[in-house]
Design a protein around this nucleic acid. Structure first.
Lengths: 335, 335
DNA sequence: CTGATACGCGAAAACGTTTACGTAATTAAA
DNA sequence: TTTAATTACGTAAACGTTTTCGCGTATCAG
């Protein structure tokens, strides 16, 4: 118990060399089954587990990956992590978590600190505050990295995303079909491809139905609850849109609150629809029409890709994996 | 760039020994300021970062902690992780995540795999499937460990919890004051101190107001959505309680759905109240009266304790830190 | 019977740090 | 002036693995 049990100890007790023990533990073909069994049983008996630091140092493999994301306390990201963790478990990998809080400097600091062999690879969903592709262009040369959801384009790296443009288009059409002609857009992730694609889908849907987009009907997300609420109230009061298309989950609460405070009925006075992974969307008052991304699957898929890369397996075909979101129509768009 | 930059490289370029470089980097008093500055500037210039594996191996410190929890995709736990991560960042620690999915065997396997020097300490919220204190009694002797929320009692370890008994008592009284006399209890975490305390608070509140508890009004959580829904529907149909006290967030959706399917109006026909960290509680239909635990602070507090232990600092006084939950009265208890 | 081949294992180096100890030069105390 | 203490640095061992290389023995084909 007090004695630390390492490979040397096993070797002594079995009267064989530490090289043989090491090889036996790694199931090397150089070792006879008889010897392997002796080693395995003693290892189990003494509860031996290899020292990760020593192993990492020698082999340059850590069996660890890092997940760098804006925030854990977010339905999308916590589901993604869950997916990542599930796959990591299957592959016997460990998972480190880093939160950037949308701060690109923190993001760089974290990823830089991971380049010295702390992890074998990185899974990341980048922060929305800035779009600095130079940094990542260099980074992807130095370490296996997979982007998910919030990605940098045109880089030599795998990206797992969703059909943002198409689903936003489809959702906008849904609002139009419900009779809306003045659809406001609550703009999030404006610096990122995902945010731009969602907005483009919205705009194109408007155009294809002969509706003119208007800057007045677009407001942008700020990291300030009160500010967002006021923005939406002003939007609703001043320009009287008949629908709110929220491109990120963070707008849901202020949107609902704004309507309540102004005495606007959802969906009669204004219809509401949002990108969201909220499990209680159907319990809201009224229940909320959502575009939900397959967060769990995104995490799984991203992790699978990373492990394929780490094991030098051929990636099936493309570097761009695109999963489908689903539009769930509920009372808030009422039709 | 191709050349890996390590301590040896720095030593060569500066024409000093690697020992001197190492000491300089660690700001040892043995090294002159002049030499330190030479080392520091070159280190920065070459973007040197120490190899963690080598450092861990030699020093037996990993600057890493593990968080072992049932599930990431849960409002309480994701907030806790956020708190933990924040403190870990301040102390320069890394955070590993492990999900047990309420499986005690997985839990043991994970924690065992952490005993070989992979981490300096563990933060855990144990699984509810079983209460096996022998295992943890041994574990806490082997590695610094802090429990949060879901704890093992009577062990020599720090525990960060909330005032489960008191807040459950208070919440039950609230229902009674709203005129309820037949309060059903949706029982979760029954094997754990937290679950037992909540239930005890409920029972004692009933008794102190002259209400008789009834087994018929208590149902237990199962890991099966449909089953829970049916259970609640049966409870509502058969025994006509005038309130549902849900001791865990997972009962909210089935409780609301059951009421809707049976045509029962909340709060007129039945009042509902739940432990929950749901951010959208106020947007539900009707808005939900909640007991919310300070999840973020719990994470912060637990992490702080662990780091104090790791730095051999005296823990202020007690091993039991108890934070206050808050009862937020909303429409679902309507009074 | 000889040479080649495979098998099973051990010796030792290597991974990049940290640290106990030694040493020379300088400074302070006696 | 001698001795002790301090300063600034170097040597080398150690942490626990993995892996290359080599060696002896057994097996087998010719």
């Amino acid at each position: 118990m007090a004695e630390t049990v390492n490979i040397k100890r096993l070797a002594q007790e079995l009267n064989i060399s530490i090289a043989t023990v090491s090889k036996a533990l790694n199931d090397s073909h150089e070792i006879s089954l008889k010897t392997k069994n002796r080693v395995w049983t003693l290892a189990k008996e003494l509860n031996y587990t290899p020292n990760p630091a020593a192993s990492n140092l020698r082999s340059n493999k850590t069996k660890t990956v890092a997940v760098v994301i804006p925030c854990v306390a977010n339905n999308f990201f916590s589901l993604s992590i869950m997916g990542i963790e599930e796959i990591a478990r299957q592959y016997g990998y460990h998972v480190l978590i880093y939160q950037t809080h949308e701060n690109i400097e923190a993001e760089k600091a974290f990823t830089n600190s991971l380049l010295n062999g702390r992890v074998d690879g990185i899974l990341t969903s980048v922060s929305s505050s800035e779009y600095n592709s130079e940094y990542y262009a260099n980074l992807v040369k130095k370490i296996p990295l997979v982007f998910f959801d919030r990605v940098y384009e045109n880089l030599d790296a795998v990206k797992v995303t969703t059909d943002d443009y198409e689903i936003a288009f489809q959702a906008t059409e849904h609002l139009i079909e419900c009779g809306c002609t003045k659809i406001a857009y609550l703009f999030g992730l404006e610096n990122l491809p995902a945010g731009k694609a969602r907005f483009a889908g919205y705009l194109d849907a408007l155009k294809s139905h002969g509706l003119a987009p208007s800057d007045e009907l677009v407001i942008k997300y700020h990291d300030d609850e009160e500010f967002n609420l006021q923005q939406i109230k002003e939007l609703l009061g001043k320009y009287k849109p008949d629908a709110l298309f929220s491109s990120i989950e963070e707008f849901i609460i202020p949107a609902y609150c704004a309507c309540r405070e102004l005495g606007l009925q959802i969906p009669d006075d204004v219809k509401v629809l949002s990108f969201s992974n909220l499990s209680t969307a159907k319990l809201l008052s009224p229940s909320l029409t959502t575009i939900s991304q397959p967060a769990f699957e995104i995490g799984r898929e991203a992790a699978k890709c990373l492990f394929k890369i780490l094991h030098n397996k051929q990636l099936d075909d493309e570097q761009n994996i695109i999963l489908k979101s689903v539009l769930t129509k509920r009372e808030s768009t009422g039709c």
